[in-house]
Amino acid sequence: MASTPASSRPSALIGWRVLALVYDMWPVIAMWMVASLVFTVGFTMSGHASRENIAPFSALQWVLWLVCWLITGAYALLSWRRGGQTLGMRPWRLKVVADDGVSAPVLRALVIRFAVGSVSLLFGGLGFWWAWVDRERLTWHDRASGTRMVRLARR
């Protein structure tokens, strides 16, 4: 598919993107659970009772959130870098490509894509829903990173 021009490739609609996000949620949650286990064991070994919770809005809680966000970023970036697809994008034939619609995006563009996509999700997915009103069906993170998500044709 290296020679297919961007205009002839089908755009990735918002429904396909949401399905891919839901599918990708499962391996990411599994990795979060492992990270939480490490934090819990470390918290217990530091002298706290095994049933004592981490205090809300404590520094440790924010560190755990940051670690989970970094794990999610590593999962997405490694997947996009490796073949343009995460596990959730494969069943629906979605792929992240550079703005030309053919070549692989550079790492800097993928980092921007993940960061802006994260902010978009914090605002209720507003950047994702933007694709419904955009002429080219691009989301905020597509525009900011100079990438796009395309739906591959059936084999």
Rank of each mutant, 00 (worst) to 15 (best):
L66R: 00
V67A: 07
V67P: 02
L70P: 04
I71K: 02
I71F: 02
T72F: 12
T72L: 11
G73Y: 04
A76I: 09
L78M: 15
G83Y: 00
G83V: 08
G83E: 13
G84P: 10
G84K: 06
G84V: 09
Q85I: 10
Q85H: 09
T86Q: 05
L87W: 15
R90F: 07
R90W: 07
R90D: 06
P91F: 11
W92D: 06
V96F: 07
V97C: 07
V97Q: 06
A98I: 08
A98K: 02
D99M: 13
D100Y: 01
G101I: 03
S103F: 04
S103G: 07
A104H: 14
A104E: 14
R108A: 14
A109L: 08
A109N: 11
L110T: 04
L110R: 01
V111G: 01
R113S: 02
R113W: 01
F114P: 02
V116D: 05
S118A: 14
V119L: 15
V119W: 08
L121A: 14
F123N: 07
F123L: 15
F123C: 15
F123E: 06
G124Q: 05
G127F: 03
F128M: 10
A131I: 06
R137W: 07
L138Y: 06
L138Q: 13
T139D: 09
W140D: 03
H141K: 02
H141N: 03
D142H: 09
A144L: 08
